[in-house]
Design a protein around this nucleic acid. Structure first.
Length: 709
DNA sequence: TGTTAATAAATTTTT
DNA sequence: TTTATTAACA
């Protein structure tokens, strides 16, 4: 057997074309379930084995740590080589690596800390107040959003035009103050990692030349999700060899709202005119009906590169559509079907309930709980985001870098040690006045007389504690140091006031943190900094007892996963597509892609459900079925009309005076069509589209409507 | 300084 | 309706 046979023998013709493509720019349009990871992994194996490319000449980039890990393991399984020098990681992980290695050229301290979104928001809150802005009027959230968007676009504060409007002017002030604070404290947020890594290469030609020469092959996963700066970084690195191998699917671009530019993938063959484009359209996941439905749905998008999935495994089952009375009935129905399929031999873990917004999970959870069925809700708190874990990490960050303001503020009075708001405000305002970090300002204050003696004492004790821990911790191996810091900080004292079970769980999580520290590879540089980066960049998934449990998650989190049985719930106008997408075609198309992603998660069985009435924010809404349902061809669908007796709609059961879609006449507005109902207590309103005046909400108590045939 | 009452906000989240 | 955040209070 030829050596390449093992690498290529399991692939279909387009996959082989992709894997064996020439060195130049390549774009692989990989439809859902078409084996894109397989192509990436085999491409790398083929490069190494057939083209004699050295592992260290390869760079492979993903978005999630999970994807990076999976790629690494699969390559290792395929090749008996030592893959040491190969760079496989997330955009953020690789940027972090570059910045740690070349921190001097990047203008960063060796122990720079990574700010997560919560730290970032906290800092912005402080800065907004410091700048004399009322956080009520100038929401720090808003600035956070603007800040990250600007950075994703590659814009520094100096690139933002303050003259656009008043908000923009304030934003520039905040941005400038934020950048200064981060620089003083040696803190870098997620977007900053990418932006700085890009600038590092741009501003250091010899460094750039080095990496450009080194990385002959750059492979990118989920290319449709790259933002401007990520793509710029890739193009820059690939400028010499042009060995860009991008894999993605424009139809699965669902993160436009986070800065992802679908345009990157859409215009790839215009950016690189010599690029080779390969389409992977054979699907190995779903049955024919599911794929047919998905294909027709996505056809309704104007803006796409175009692709049609097919399978040779047959039609399979029809997709079931269920119209529920209300959201309770919807959950009840889903549970019923789950039990039915379980009885037929489908494991719970092979079933997924998908929804547009996380709040929808509650009803399903209640049903499953009642039925005593295990379930797992995705998208909860990351392990490293837990309060107690973040507290402990803040201490560690302070040891590594006392100037880390975010960490300082978090733990200066946790557990309480008599450093109240007044004392802390004094530190903050001095820091603000003198443009120093909180640590430096605190140092000054304990030597002066501004503070009351008691506060000065308390603050001084805290600074001493950190310094002592710093010195003594240095002598210890990392896990022992973490443990030492946890005990010496007396953090548990703060938790012991909480209910006993939470206190106990916090204790366990802190023990788990020590465990996590023990896993760190100490040989790559400073163990503490490696660990701290890790906790910022990795989710720290808790793979708790893998019980057989039903999977609950948002449609977004479902991307990349597959399940034999899938429920897509809440298929209603306003919910899915979300009402905020109504007036924007681009957003609406992204919603449709999200639906496409959901549909293509299903392997054998797919249910779509919607409710005629839904309680949302305490109000009962009467939404229309999602337009996406109408866009699905009926030959793939079966309507499920459950004739059993069902629970009453709601206690305050409301009779609808008209059918939806009923033509009605109004004395002044003329003729129109009833589109929706909305009830506020006893008052019922109807949304009517009049041919003369357009859309109107009318209160049925007063409006005299006459039904027309 | 910790608890309570009022008030506002409520897509989606790979890092 | 639920949830989080903030202001007022004992």
């Amino acid at each position: 057997m030829a050596p390449d046979a093992s690498i290529l023998s399991t692939l279909n013709p387009p996959q082989i074309e992709a894997v064996t493509a020439a060195d130049g720019p390549v774009l692989i349009l990989a439809g859902a379930g078409s084996g894109k990871t397989r192509v990436l992994v085999h491409r790398i194996a083929w490069l190494i084995q057939q083209r004699q490319v050295a592992p260290h000449q390869i760079l492979a980039v993903t978005f999630t740590n999970k994807a990076a890990r999976e790629m690494k393991t699969r390559i290792e399984a395929l090749l008996p080589f030592n893959l040491q020098g190969m760079w496989v990681g997330t955009f953020h992980g690789l940027a972090n690596r570059l910045l740690r290695t070349h921190h001097q050229q990047a203008g960063l301290p060796a122990a720079f800390q990574i700010l997560d979104s919560a730290d970032q928001l906290q800092l912005l809150k402080r800065l907004v107040v410091d700048l004399g802005l009322d956080p009520k009027e100038w929401a720090p959230k808003q600035f956070q959003w603007m800040l990250n968007e600007a950075k994703e676009q590659g814009h520094r504060a100096r690139h933002v035009d303050p003259e656009v409007d008043y908000l923009q002017r304030q934003f520039v002030r905040v941005y400038v103050a934020y950048e200064a604070a981060c620089e003083r404290a040696g803190m870098v947020d997620f977007a900053e990692l990418l932006l700085k890594a890009h600038e590092l290469l741009l501003e250091n030609p010899e460094l750039l030349a080095h990496y450009q020469a080194r990385f002959q092959h750059i492979l990118v996963d989920e290319f449709q999700d790259t933002n401007k700066i990520q793509y710029a970084w890739l193009r820059l690195l690939a400028a010499k060899h042009q060995g860009l191998f991008a894999v993605g699917d424009d139809d699965q671009s669902i993160y436009g709202w986070r800065g992802a530019e679908v345009e990157n993938i859409r215009s790839f063959d215009r950016t690189y005119t010599e690029a080779m484009v390969v389409r992977l359209e054979q699907n190995y996941r779903s049955s024919g009906h599911i794929l047919g439905l998905a294909n027709h749905l996505i056809e309704h998008n104007q803006d796409r590169l175009g692709k049609a999935l097919w399978t040779d495994t047959g039609d399979g089952e029809l997709v079931t559509l269920y119209a529920a009375y209300n959201e309770v009935d919807e959950a009840r129905y889903v549970l019923e079907q789950i039990q039915l399929h379980y009885a037929r031999g489908v494991c719970y873990q092979d079933m997924a309930i998908l929804y547009r917004s996380n709040a929808q999970s509650r009803l399903f959870e209640e049903q499953l709980l009642q039925a005593n069925i295990h379930y797992r809700v995705y998208g909860g708190l990351r392990f490293f985001d837990r309060k107690e874990v973040k507290d402990a990490l803040a201490y560690l960050r302070l040891l590594s870098n006392p100037n880390d303001d975010a960490a300082f503020e978090r733990v200066v009075n946790r557990p309480t040690r008599g450093i109240g708001a007044k004392c802390l405000n004094a530190v903050k305002s001095l820091a603000n006045e003198t443009q120093k970090t909180l640590w430096a300002a605190a140092k000054v204050l304990i030597g002066g007389t501004v503070l009351a003696a008691r506060s000065r004492q308390a603050l001084s004790k805290f600074l001493h504690l950190i310094e002592t821990l710093q010195q003594e911790g240095q002598a210890l191996p990392l896990p022992a140091c973490v443990e030492y810091v946890i005990t010496q900080s007396e953090l548990q004292r703060a938790y012991d006031k909480e209910p006993p079970d939470t206190a106990a769980s916090r204790r366990e999580n802190l023990a788990e943190l020590v465990n996590a520290a023990a896993q760190v590879d100490a040989d790559e540089g400073d163990a503490m900094n490696v660990f701290l980066s890790f906790t910022a960049l990795e989710a720290g998934d808790e793979d708790d007892a893998p019980k057989d449990s039903v999977q609950l998650m948002s449609l977004h989190s479902a991307k990349g996963l597959e399940f034999p049985l899938v429920f897509i719930t809440g298929m209603e106008e306003g919910l899915f597509p979300n009402n905020r997408a109504f007036d924007d075609l681009a957003k609406l198309e992204e919603e449709r892609r999200l639906c496409y992603v959901g549909v293509t998660r299903a392997m054998a069985t797919l249910y779509l459900t919607y409710a005629h009435a839904r309680r949302l924010y305490g109000e009962v809404k009467y939404p229309q079925p999602s337009r996406f349902i109408e866009e699905m061809p009926s030959q793939h669908l079966q309507q499920m009309t459950d004739e059993q007796i069902r629970p009453a709609v709601y206690e305050d059961d409301i009779m609808l005076p008209f059918e939806l879609g009923q033509r009605v006449a109004h004395a002044t507005f003329g003729e129109g069509v009833v589109l929706a109902f909305d009830a506020h207590g006893q008052q019922m309103k109807a949304h009517i589209n009049f041919s003369s005046v357009g859309l109107k909400w009318l209160n049925l108590e007063y409006a005299k409507l006459v039904a027309l045939s």
